[in-house]
């Protein structure tokens, strides 16, 4: 691949890859490193990919693999899918809340979703990938993707509720509420 074609590939994908990495790594520095590492692998391994239409999927899969390789696995990860979904239907105030708050707070809420659910959820939102494409990228079965999306969305709604700076604080019964004059 010549330099110009490579630059075009970078231009097309580095921003969404960074957002994906940011949701996974939870900090900008590590996210930048992950994106650089992903393109570095593309450049150094010769990638052997003849069909550029598959480049996007290759890049996201590679970044995810690099993330998994770099972070320490802990015992909680394997049991996450046994957790109850914490289902709560989306309400009108959820939509208002998201429209009102800063994008960084939305990202912060997304970053607080459990990692197992966060990766498919991020691809769903950031890259508008179909469940099939997400399954291919993360190398998990389709049913698993659907399950993780459903549960991830429920977690995200709860996280957004907690993140909202204008959320009302309900005074504990029996205490006096401070009022501004």
């Amino acid at each position: 691949m010549n330099n110009e074609a490579f630059a075009q590939l970078v231009d097309a994908h580095y921003a969404p890859l960074y957002r994906f990495a940011l949701s996974l790594a939870r900090n900008g520095s590590d996210a930048g490193d992950l994106v650089q590492q992903t393109f570095f692998i593309w450049a150094t391994k010769g990638h052997g990919l003849r069909e550029l239409s598959k480049a996007k999927s290759w890049l996201f899969t590679t970044l995810y693999r690099e993330f998994l390789r770099g972070r320490r696995r802990d015992s909680r990860s394997s049991s996450l899918e046994d957790l109850p979904p914490g289902e709560r239907d989306p309400a009108a105030e959820d939509i208002d809340r998201v429209s009102r708050i800063d994008s960084a707070l939305v990202m912060s809420a997304l970053q607080s979703v459990e990692e197992t659910f966060r990766a498919p959820l991020t691809l769903f939102y950031l890259e508008d990938m179909s469940y099939q494409q997400i399954a291919d990228t993360l190398e998990v079965p389709i049913g698993t993707v659907m399950s993780r999306l459903s549960r991830g969305k429920a977690q995200l709604r709860l996280a957004l509720e907690r993140t909202d700076p204008s959320a009302k604080i309900v005074p504990f019964p029996g205490t006096k509420e401070n009022t501004a004059s």
Partner: peptide, 28 residues
């Protein structure tokens, strides 16, 4: 509607300045 709102907010997150240049140089 909620999914659309979340996706729109997340799309506003911009990569840090210099990341693109670092990627291109790194590949070289």
């Amino acid at each position: 509607e909620l999914d659309t709102a979340v996706a729109a907010k997340l799309a506003q997150i911009a990569p840090p300045p210099g990341l693109r240049e670092a990627i291109l140089a790194g590949a070289r």
